[in-house]
Amino acid sequence: MYPHERSLVKRFAGQPFALVGVNSDKDRNKIRQVVKDKSITWRSFWNGSKGMRGPISLHWNIKGWPTVYLLDAKGVIRHKNVATERLDDAIERLVGEAQRTKRAP
């Protein structure tokens, strides 16, 4: 997954797009090292020491990992569990929408 995420961050750099993670690793030190080693540049909420049973994923009723939600620029949920191969297109459409709205008077 990391290479795809890295390519998304690169592709939409300078555009109204952000990748935000919710990380489920129990050990915060370990994940800090992973973030460093694998040059993960996006920010992640930490789901806490209970890992996949942590408070954020419980609240969001996450049943499988990884799970991806796509929110538009207004914070509205537009896609859930997007298939990896459809992710780029879906983001591109939403980013285009955000840019059009911004330009509109």
Binding site: A18, G21, N23, S24, K30, F45, W46, A73, K74
Partner: peptide, 25 residues
């Protein structure tokens, strides 16, 4: 908190399309 212990919010990203990814290593 983020993985370094700094608190932030999802709504900090209003105005941007957000890909919210539940992930782990």
């Amino acid at each position: 908190e983020d993985i370094d212990g700094q608190v932030f919010r999802l709504t900090d990203y209003r105005g941007k399309v957000v890909m919210l990814s539940f992930w782990g290593d």
